[in-house]
């Protein structure tokens, strides 16, 4: 069985924005989709801008896919899979995330 690790309170996330968490030595960007009240997590590192910034991008949907736009050069990363829509070779890792009660958890 997989283990889950507490990260933060759900109230730490403002709807339709992201935060960055330190998880097993990795930087993870966690977003709250306000429409469905669902959380999503992908790597915080933008492989194109080469900086840890994805949690600070604007989220939205492009042709039906839930994405974050990098705050640096605006490429879109899918919140569900980490795929980079413009440059699939620069896709990032996606993480398992859930909300238990009022706590946000990442899979250990």
């Amino acid at each position: 069985m997989s283990e889950w690790k507490d990260i933060c309170k759900l109230t730490d996330l403002a709807a339709n924005t992201g935060v960055c968490a330190l998880h097993n030595g990795e930087q993870v960007a966690i977003f709250l989709d306000g429409k469905e009240q669902k959380v999503h997590a992908i790597s915080n590192f933008d492989p194109i801008g080469k900086a840890n910034v994805l949690s600070r991008g604007i989220i939205g949907d492009i042709k039906g896919r839930l994405v974050v736009a990098s705050p640096l050069y605006k490429q879109h990363f899918c919140l569900e899979t980490g795929e980079c829509l413009e440059e699939p070779e620069n896709s990032v890792k996606a993480y398992q995330v859930r909300v238990e009660g009022d706590v946000v958890q990442l899979q250990a």
Partner: peptide, 9 residues
Amino acid sequence: GRGCEICKP
């Protein structure tokens, strides 16, 4: 839809 980095700002 939800909006994007163009319409939101």
